[in-house]
Simulated scan of single mutants.
Amino acid sequence: MQHHDQDTSRRDWLKTVALGGAATLAAPIVQAAPAQPAPAARRIPIAISTYSYWHFQEKKYPIDKVIEDAARQGFDGVEILHRQMENETLPYMNKLKRLAFDNGLALPLLSIHQSFVQPKPEDRKKDIEHTLKCINLATQMGIPAIRMNTGSWRTVKRDANYYKDGKEPPIQGYTDQDAIKWCIESMQECLVAAEKAGVVLAIENHWGLSSNIDYLLEIYKPLASSPAMGMNVDTGNFVGDPYPQFERLAPHATIVQAKTYYGGGHYYDLDLDYKRIAGILRKVNFNGYVSLEMEGKEDPATAVPKSLQILREALS
């Protein structure tokens, strides 16, 4: 009898211990979780445009030298100006692509020149063909975006006055609304090929028709539903106060070109507040490339490193 009682009490004891253990496990752990470090702010990648070393002088500055220099200085990529390419042969394009890869650099943008503000359909067709050819060049070099222009009437001289107000009357017999329509139709045609190639066509506020931000948005918005449509916002190409206009375009930006003017600009001078510009970009969660276009007369050997430092400090 005694033996049976011992068994029962042992069983009860084990049950109590087991239940107590379960209760302990179920009890909330009061110990504070270690504080998580705040996520580091993402570093915006900065590229350099090959144009920074060559402002359309007679002798072209070699793109391969820009790539090597960009790697030495700590840039993240190189934007290629199409007119600066020595040629369009496969060996040349593959050499640039390989050189960038070996140096750990991206080639984010191919900047081309074209205009759809041309009354004759055959003239617009020529520039559509040019764009299609450039889509193929970009594809070959592994470049995901192309800089596009609206184009301009070319009815006024590009002097200091023009860069102050950007005003350009249409060719007689036509209106700005005609030009907007030509731009939309021509871009639509180019976008068909761009979508197939997986290349973004980034339209820029690049004087001409696009000096008027309302016009630029009027062209961009009907095309924005295309996965290949983008916008390249240039900090230096605004008429009047740049910041409110930059704020309007920033939400649509796929890439940003940042101008500096050391030694005085070739066309005009601006003193841009990059801390303020960076703040606008942060507000819209811009994470893409910012590409430096040094447009001053100072030697790029000194002006480019200074420009990079300004952009790094503002964008970090």
Results as ranks from 00 to 15, higher is better:
residue 1 M to Y: 04
residue 4 H to S: 09
residue 6 Q to F: 11
residue 8 T to C: 00
residue 16 T to D: 13
residue 18 A to R: 12
residue 18 A to V: 12
residue 39 P to Q: 05
residue 41 A to G: 10
residue 50 T to M: 11
residue 51 Y to V: 13
residue 55 H to L: 13
residue 60 K to Q: 12
residue 63 I to E: 09
residue 67 I to K: 02
residue 68 E to G: 07
residue 75 F to P: 03
residue 77 G to R: 03
residue 83 R to C: 09
residue 102 D to W: 05
residue 103 N to A: 09
residue 108 P to R: 02
residue 111 S to V: 04
residue 112 I to R: 04
residue 141 M to L: 05
residue 142 G to N: 03
residue 146 I to W: 00
residue 149 N to R: 04
residue 165 D to S: 15
residue 172 Q to D: 13
residue 175 T to K: 07
residue 176 D to S: 13
residue 177 Q to E: 15
residue 187 M to Y: 15
residue 190 C to D: 06
residue 194 A to Q: 01
residue 203 I to Y: 13
residue 205 N to Q: 14
residue 211 S to Y: 13
residue 216 L to K: 05
residue 219 I to H: 10
residue 220 Y to K: 11
residue 223 L to Q: 12
residue 225 S to H: 14
residue 226 S to K: 07
residue 226 S to C: 07
residue 235 T to E: 05
residue 240 G to Y: 02
residue 258 A to K: 09
residue 259 K to Q: 07
residue 263 G to P: 02
residue 263 G to I: 00
residue 264 G to T: 06
residue 267 Y to T: 13
residue 280 I to G: 05
residue 282 R to D: 13
residue 290 V to R: 00
residue 293 E to Q: 09
residue 295 E to S: 08
residue 305 P to V: 04
residue 310 I to Q: 11
residue 315 L to I: 06
residue 316 S to C: 04
residue 316 S to A: 14
